[in-house]
């Protein structure tokens, strides 16, 4: 179970690195954060899982989406 979640985390982080759209990358980072929260919970660390769910998935994603909306896209594609 943990190994499958780790593979999913790897896939989502690789896609977040490779994808061109910044908003999709931020959302993939949120998916990565939620999967790591599940891994923490399965490894019986519910305290860390609660912190990861609140900070990584909640506040961090909101701030990164705000940054994506407030900055301009200058890219050669």
């Amino acid at each position: 179970m943990v190994e499958a979640l780790l593979v999913l985390m790897l896939i989502s982080s690789v896609f977040a690195l490779l994808i061109r759209d910044m908003l999709a990358a931020v959302l993939l980072l949120g998916v990565f954060s939620m999967l790591s929260c599940l891994v923490f919970f399965l490894l019986s660390a519910p305290d860390v899982a609660l912190t990861e769910a609140a900070v990584g998935t909640g506040v961090g994603t909101v701030i990164l989406i705000w940054i994506v909306y407030r900055t301009e896209r200058r890219d050669r594609t």
Binding site: P46, D47, A49, L50, T51, A54, V55, G58, V59, V62
Partner: peptide, 14 residues
């Protein structure tokens, strides 16, 4: 139980 000052504060902030 699991939780504490920082976690609760961040949940309130969210």
């Amino acid at each position: 139980s699991p939780g504490g000052g920082f976690q609760g504060g961040v949940v309130i902030a969210s």
